[in-house]
């Protein structure tokens, strides 16, 4: 075991897989010599050489396009999009190509690629360094979407993603790269080096896809969350004194429906939290699923806490970010209803 930040854990996952599997290649903008703007690939080019870890031209469409081609050849590309906000030029390659290659060729070709991208706000990044576009991926049949909330899961999930034969969108909440941020922006963040979930095995292990985790057991209400919002939800539960059970989805789609449904059936109440904009956000899908599967067990209407339906503002960031106060209010609201 070693103490790792999320960045180190992600790097360790790529390191392990580059070492174990000669088909793994890692590339993206600034990923090679420099090691990525968030340093996730630092040292990997020096260790594995320029033909396995390299810089690409600034072309997200190109990055995903070559990944699809390399995957068709038999490699396992791990591509980095510098910020999730910049994946849009790659939309066609992801939606029309990567996602459907297996289906349209009836399994003749597959697309075993992993596309990593930092997402989420909380760093004063403004509207083009803060987005959470997960719903755009979960809406596409054939893409897997994964979003870890801590270093241990990040490494285990990334290894699973790389080993998976389907295209995986691997979203990394950048605000918790260095420590579990709970939304209290005026307080210092505990670094991962002082957190049990920063304890990460140095070698190979996996966290399976499509498996959610009960992050915090509780009796009164289920909070469904992922990424940074798991930590915000935990703070809200602790501060409100409401005994919330927090389900960390980890894999957004395909997902672990059973864990979520079981929890809501147990508590009879449900709050869904994400940082992304509200309308047609992934929360809408989660809410439908809970409604479809738990309707007769529900004691209160399901409540969503999300980002507002506006671009992520730069200066008014904390009025936008759904912090512990807003989550706490939602918890109180579902507890009041009967």
């Amino acid at each position: 075991m070693a103490q790792m930040t999320m960045i180190q854990a992600l790097r360790s996952a790529m390191d392990v897989m580059l070492d174990r599997n000669p088909e793994v290649v890692v590339f993206g903008e600034d990923v090679g010599y420099f090691g990525g703007v968030f340093r996730c690939t630092e040292g990997l080019q020096a260790k594995y050489g320029k033909t396995r870890v390299f810089d690409t031209p600034i072309s997200e469409g190109g990055i995903v396009g070559v990944a699809v081609g390399m995957g068709a050849y038999g490699l396992r590309p791990v591509a980095e999009i510098q910020f999730a906000d910049y994946f849009y030029p790659a939309s066609d390659q992801l939606v029309s190509e990567a996602a459907r290659l297996r289906h349209r060729s009836a399994g003749d070709f597959t697309c075993p690629i992993t596309v990593r991208m930092p997402c989420g706000g909380g760093i004063y990044g403004g509207q083009t360094h803060s987005q959470s576009p997960e719903a755009l991926f979960t809406h596409v049949c054939g893409l897997r979407t994964v979003l870890p909330s801590n270093p241990y899961d990040a490494k285990g999930l990334l290894i699973s993603a790389i080993e998976n034969d389907d295209p995986v969108i691997f979203l990394e909440p950048k605000r918790i790269y260095n420590g579990p941020f709970d939304g209290h922006h005026d307080k210092p963040v505990v670094p991962w080096s002082k957190h049990p979930l920063g304890e990460v095995p140095e070698g190979y292990y996996t966290v399976p896809l499509e498996s959610a985790k009960i992050f915090r057991p509780g009796q009164d209400v289920t909070v469904i969350a992922y990424g940074t919002m798991v930590w915000v939800a935990e703070a809200a539960a602790n501060e409100s004194g409401i005994d919330a059970e927090i389900v960390d989805l980890r894999s957004l789609w395909p997902m672990d429906l059973d864990t979520m449904v079981e929890s809501v059936k147990k508590t009879g109440r449900c709050v869904i939290v994400h940082e992304a904009t509200r309308t047609s956000g992934f929360g809408a899908e989660l809410l439908s699923l809970v409604q479809e599967h738990c309707f007769y067990d529900l004691e209160a209407p399901i409540v969503r806490v999300t980002g507002w339906d506006t671009p992520y503002p730069h200066a008014q960031e904390w009025a936008y970010f759904p912090g512990p106060e807003r989550v706490g209010e939602a918890l109180a609201r579902v507890m009041e209803a009967s």
Binding site: I58, D85, Y86, Y88, Y124, G125, G126, Q127, T128, H129, P311, P313, H314, A315, Q316
Partner: peptide, 30 residues
Amino acid sequence: SNERDPLKGRQLPVMYSYKKLGFFSISGNL
């Protein structure tokens, strides 16, 4: 990003917009 910011705090610093000076609104997307 202050209370006289013509872009109302929405954009990162340097992402100016000045139609009247022939300067289109800057995008973060290259």
